[in-house]
Amino acid sequence: MESIESHTEQEPSGLTKVKNSVISFFLMLYRVYAFIIRFFKEVFVPPYEFREVVRQCYETGVRSFTLITLTGFIIGVIFTKQSRPSLTDFGATSWLPSLVSIAVLKALAPLVTALIAAGKVGSSIGAELGSMRVTEQIDAMEVSGTKPFKFLVCTRVIATTFTIPLLATYTALIALLGGYLNINQNEGTSYATFIEQAFEPITFVDIWASLAKAVVFGFTIGIVGCYQGYNSTKGTEGVGKAANGAVVTAMFLVFIEEVLIVQIAGWFR
């Protein structure tokens, strides 16, 4: 109480503010780390809450499906459209299918799926668990003989880890479809030729790296959303903070992980 008051008396300087928020960010990363450890401690111990996991997978998919379909398709079309002029200059429009598939499979699909899922799934997990915390539903679960961490957190994290790679695969297919339709319209390339050219430059390592990325992104979105909601502070603004914090933190971590995984995958080539 007192420390808060003395704090507001002397308005902190801009630099102190930045310093404080950087410190609190790393403090939060440490707490997220502890949360992850707890997840791994509990997830392998029965009961496995299989039904709830299936339900959460369904929720994760349904929440982001429409937006992902739309975005995936548009990305495929736009990327193809925008790349065409530069290839035309070299008379290399026949490279379009490979260019599109490299961009989509290696970079765009997992990243875009993760960003959309962070916005749709991460925020709703944060808000959902946040309001359960604030209205004591989590306590009610605990006193009536259900372990809330297992039932609420483990199930959701498993669900996002499993579902987001599937969604990323779906995004990739939809984006390729968009690219194909555009190329077919303009260059008259046949379906078979498109497929052949699109997958020609793609190796197994590329596919695995993308899937691995999506798995890591899915885990991150689930963990961060649950962390924010589960540890939400009392009061109604706690719920909003949890939802918002889930999106911002998850997106930030997804970008960092993207860079790291691309580096690591590079060593295997």
Binding site: E128, S131, M132, T135, E136, Q137, D139, A140, M141, V143, S144
Partner: peptide
């Protein structure tokens, strides 16, 4: 032990 919460804590989903 039964626990009746101040704001009822019903599962609202």
């Amino acid at each position: 032990i039964g626990f009746s919460f101040q704001n009822s804590a019903l599962y609202d989903s």
